[in-house]
């Protein structure tokens, strides 16, 4: 084959793929989602070590046991464990770039939640800062973590590093 013929290959074809999926939230996530529609944050305890998983979930990943039993209600405030300032836009994120993604440890929870930080100067973002949730107006609440638009700074002294370091 001559070099010219070699170059004469079809380089791109387009095959649009659209597949629709119907997800089931599952039992424990359903309980969580129903609660957050009412503005309540629900976690659950691991039956082995009593640690509180938030959001509530089907099993303890560490012990592989189903998490059942009474839910634990948590407050909508916590500590910023770690964060990143993102300068790449994302359709799924309702904030303008640059925006701050955070891992927040809610008071009383033993697992971190990934969420967004708002209402805060970028220079002032730091680990250990205290945060509270900024909710959407009540009439817009759905079965979604997005009922919390973002977390924002709380006028409190920073949490002690030791209080959250094991969650980094």
């Amino acid at each position: 084959m001559s070099d010219e013929a070699k170059d004469d290959v079809v380089k791109v074809i387009r095959t649009p793929v659209q597949l629709d999926y119907n997800y089931s939230a599952g039992r424990s996530a359903s309980r969580f989602l129903r609660s957050i529609k009412e503005g309540k944050l629900i976690g659950q305890r691991c039956p082995v070590d009593g640690r509180v998983y938030f959001p509530s979930r089907g099993s303890c990943p560490q012990h592989g046991v189903p998490i059942e039993g009474e839910p634990v209600e948590l407050v909508d405030r916590g500590t910023l464990v770690t964060f990143s300032i993102v300068r790449i836009p994302a359709e799924s994120v309702p904030l303008e770039i640059p925006f701050v993604t955070i891992q927040v440890l809610l008071d009383g929870a033993d697992t971190i939640l990934m969420h967004l930080l708002g209402n805060c100067d970028l220079e002032k973002v730091h680990m250990g800062m205290r945060l509270k949730a900024r909710w959407k107006p009540k009439e817009e609440w759905e079965e979604s973590v997005a009922n919390i638009i973002y977390f924002e700074p709380l006028d409190e002294p920073d949490a002690d590093y030791d209080s959250y370091k094991e969650h980094i």
């Binding site: 997800y23 939230a25 996530a29 989602l33 990143s84 993102v86 790449i88 994302a90 799924s92 994120v93 993604t101 955070i102 990934m114 969420h115 967004l116 079965e143 979604s144 973590v145 997005a146």
Partner: peptide, 12 residues
Amino acid sequence: PFAVATVVGAGG
């Protein structure tokens, strides 16, 4: 569904 996508790519 049921989650907030806060992570943009592996870097995020």
